[in-house]
Amino acid sequence: MAFSAGALPSASSKALAGLARRKGLAALALAIALLPLALPNNYTYEIAILVGLNAIVCVGLNLLVGYAGQISLGHAGFFGLGAYGSAILAARYGWPPLASLAAATAAVALLAWAIGRPILRLRGHYLAMATLGFGIIVSIVLATEDRITGGPDGMAVPPLTVLGFAVSGEKTWYWLVGALLIASVWVAQNLIASPRGRALRALHGSEFAAGALGIDAARHKLSIFVVSAVFAAAAGALTAHYAGFITPAKASFLHSIELVTMVVFGGMASTYGAVLGAAVLTTLPQFLTVFKEYEMVLLGAVMMLTMIFMPQGLAPTLARALGPALEKLLAAARRKPV
């Protein structure tokens, strides 16, 4: 009882949480800044860019799945609609690509709001089925409306231009995507550290108790569903403009599963986990190509073993393993100057 000064531990833990947030962001920025030293050619740059784009989707999806505890098996639908929306406005209607990107993302936000209202009343498996249905409808429409989408063969997408300058070349894209990823992580962490973030985690913990505290679960679920759809749509549009080409496969059920897998693999309710999951599961298949026909078998095995031995996901497990060692190091560093 004598030690329960209250303000003291709370203040120090708050400072620690804030510090961890800033340090994590600084570490991510440093990693992005230093990574080019280890990227020998355009092909490796391309993989890094895809990691970044997937990571942006996963950071958004993690807000919904990891923090608010609501499943979506249709996020590739939002990704695909963002991609095709921007591609079609730019290619067929001659919009400047930055405007088409913004318009497509805004339209997807509106759509997510409209479909989220009825389906977010569902829970668990039923919500999974409903979002799955949405994703399948989107991929079918994209594949069959071939006069505007180019059908299963896909369509060419004009390059991104910002203020009249075309964004081209792997290096330029790398820095653009890197900056956007840092911004995404910053925004996601801000949300989680706010009263709204707590409300989301609360309704994940117990919807009854959240309601009894005045938290309108339906409204919070809807708003985070829209936010996560915006992350997916914007990353989708960027992917289309970067690749210069888009096919309905990017909106497919399989891609939705890939995205959720990245989030779970990296560690739910962990923003860096989402980034790490996207990084590992985007690069691993590239390394596994040396195993030729066994590639998918090995990928599956890696994922199964990870889930068996690290059910919390990669990032939380690593943090727990390395955390005490890091703390010791910090404590030692703090002691030295005195």
Binding site: L191, S194, P195, R196, G197, R201, A210, L213, I215, S223
Partner: peptide, 15 residues
């Protein structure tokens, strides 16, 4: 979390 009714914030302010 129990303080939500008294310490709420808008989505924009949070982000």
């Amino acid at each position: 979390a129990g303080r939500w009714l008294h310490e709420r914030c808008s989505l924009g302010a949070a982000l």
